[in-house]
Design a protein around this nucleic acid. Structure first.
Lengths: 251, 251
DNA sequence: CGACATTTTGATGAAGATCAAACTGGGTGG
DNA sequence: CCACCCAGTTTGATCTTCATCAAAATGTCG
C-alpha cells in the first residue's frame, strides 16, 4: 500500500465512495511521488500529455503567455487538486503549469488514466467532478477580473484560497500559506505589481490582513467576503464530507 | 431516425467515430427538438440539472450575476455546442444560460446522459472533449479580459467567433451572424456599452469590420488576428475533419 | 404615430498602468 | 564576518484608458 495511492483514493472518496476493485485499480496505476523545486515547469503549453498529477503538498499555478511576454495566471492548483486531466483527453496542454513552492505530487500516466476512465465509470465520474469544479473556479476568476475593482478582486481571491484550503486541513485558524510574490498576485489578478502592493497596504492599514513570509492571516474573513461579494457556492464544497482525514499533517 | 439525433451524432463523430451500438443508444436517448425565443433563460444559476442541450441553431450565452446586478458573460454557446454537461455531474448549475437569438436545441435528460456516460466510454470521452474545449475557451477569455486593451479584446472575440463558426458551416466568406447588442458585447468583454460603441466605431473607420443587422463582416481577418494576438490553438479545432457535413443549410 | 430599445456623441472623472527610484532582507562569496 | 547582490517590496509622480453621466439620434415594432 503506497501513501500516494492512499491520498489519491481519499481525494476520490470526497465525491463518492469507491469499491475495493476501484481502489485496487487506482493503487496499481498510481505512480511514485515526485518532488519538484519551486518555480519549475510541470507542463508547458503545447506539451503532449504525460498523465495527471495529484498534488500532495505545495502550490502550483496554471498560466498562459501573451504574445508580448506578459502572462496571465488562469488558476491556482492547491494540495489535493488534480491537474492535466484535460490534456489526457485533448492530447496536448493548452496552458502551462508551474510550481510556486516546492511540490510533492503523484503521477498517473495518460494510458492509466484513459484505461481507468473507460473501465471504471465511477472513477471517471469523480474526475469529471474535479474538472468541473475547476472550471467553475475559472469562470469565477473571469467575473472577478472582469467586474471587480482591485481591492475587492484581491479580497475575493484571498477568500477563495482560504475556503479551498480549509477542507484539506491546511489552515490554522484564519492563517494559511500563500507562496505567491506580489508579482504573482498581479499575474493572477491582472493588476500591476505596484498596484498589488498598494492594495495590500490598504488591507493592512484597515486591519483586514497580515501577510508576512508567505503567510496570510485574514483578521476578518466575514468583512472581507462581504466587501468582495464572495459567495462560496462556485467552489462546490457542499458535497465534501466535513474535514476529512487527509495526508497533510496538522501541526 | 430523428433529425435531432443525426445532428448530435455527427457532432460526436467530429472527435471520434461511433459504433452502430453507440449511435443507437444516442438515438434512443435523444429527446425532441425544442424551440425557444430570443432572450429566454435556458437554465439559471442554482437550478438542478435537467439534462444537456445540443444547440442546433442560434446563439446562447453563459453568464453569472454579481451582487450589484451587473452581469459577466462567461462564454458563448454556438450551434453544435453542448451545454449543461457539467450540471449533470455537479447536479446544479453554477451559472445561467440564456438564448441570444431564437434557438433550436435537442435535449437529453440527466438520467440519459449519466447512463450513456457509464455504459459507453467513448461517448463519455467525446463529452469530455467538448467540455475541455469549452474550458480552454473560458481560460482564453480570462486572458483576453485580464490583459488586452479594449480594441484588441474585441478583435480577439470576433476572431474567435469567426473561427468557431467556420467548421460548422455558418460563415459566408468572412461574414457571419452575431446576434449580440453592444450591451451584450460589453457584458462579454467587461467593457461599458459606451466604450464598446467607440471601439466598434474605430474598427469601422479603420475599415476592419462592417456590423449591421447582427451581421458581422471581417474585412481583414489576418490584420485583426495579428492586432489581437489571436492564436486559434486554444479552440482545439485541429482534430476536427475539415468542413464536415452539418445540419445547417448553406445558402 | 408613439413607445421603447439600441446606438451614437460629448464631457468629465477615477482607477489603475507605467516609469523611476529607494528600501528591505536573505544569501553568497571573498 | 562583512560587503555585495539580487529578488522582492515600498513609495512617489505622471499619464492613459476606460467608466460614468447626460443627452441626442436612430431604428423597430405594435
Amino acid at each position: 500500500m503506497q501513501a500516494n495511492a492512499a491520498s489519491l483514493i481519499s481525494r476520490f472518496e470526497h465525491c463518492m465512495p469507491l469499491s475495493s476493485e476501484e481502489k485496487n485499480a487506482l493503487q496499481i496505476h498510481c505512480g511514485p511521488v515526485q518532488a519538484m523545486p519551486a518555480r519549475s515547469e510541470i507542463a508547458c503549453e503545447g506539451d503532449p500529455a504525460v498523465g495527471i498529477h495529484v498534488i500532495i503538498e505545495g502550490f502550483a499555478c496554471r498560466y498562459r503567455y501573451l504574445a508580448d511576454g506578459r502572462q496571465q495566471m488562469v488558476g491556482l492548483v492547491l494540495p489535493g487538486d488534480i491537474c492535466c486531466v484535460r490534456a489526457c483527453v485533448l492530447t496536448r496542454m493548452d496552458h502551462g503549469i508551474r510550481s510556486l513552492s516546492t511540490l510533492r505530487a503523484s503521477l498517473l500516466s495518460r494510458r492509466s488514466v484513459l484505461k481507468l476512465m473507460d473501465h471504471f465509470p465511477r472513477v471517471a465520474r469523480a474526475l469529471w467532478w474535479f474538472t468541473f469544479v475547476e472550471e467553475s473556479i475559472t469562470r469565477a476568476w473571469l467575473v472577478n477580473i472582469g467586474h471587480r475593482a482591485a481591492f475587492d478582486r484581491m479580497a475575493h481571491l484571498f477568500c477563495e484560497v482560504y475556503q479551498r484550503l480549509q477542507p484539506v486541513g491546511l489552515t490554522r485558524g484564519t492563517t494559511f500559506d500563500l507562496p505567491l510574490t506580489q508579482s504573482d498576485l498581479g499575474d493572477a489578478l491582472a493588476l500591476s505589481t505596484v498596484h498589488v502592493n498598494r492594495v495590500l497596504m490598504e488591507m493592512r492599514h484597515r486591519g483586514l490582513i497580515t501577510l508576512r513570509n508567505q503567510q496570510l492571516t485574514l483578521h476578518d474573513p466575514e468583512t472581507l467576503g462581504r466587501l468582495a461579494g464572495f459567495d462560496p457556492g462556485y467552489l462546490h464544497l457542499e458535497s465534501f464530507p466535513r474535514a476529512p482525514a487527509r495526508a497533510s499533517p496538522a501541526p
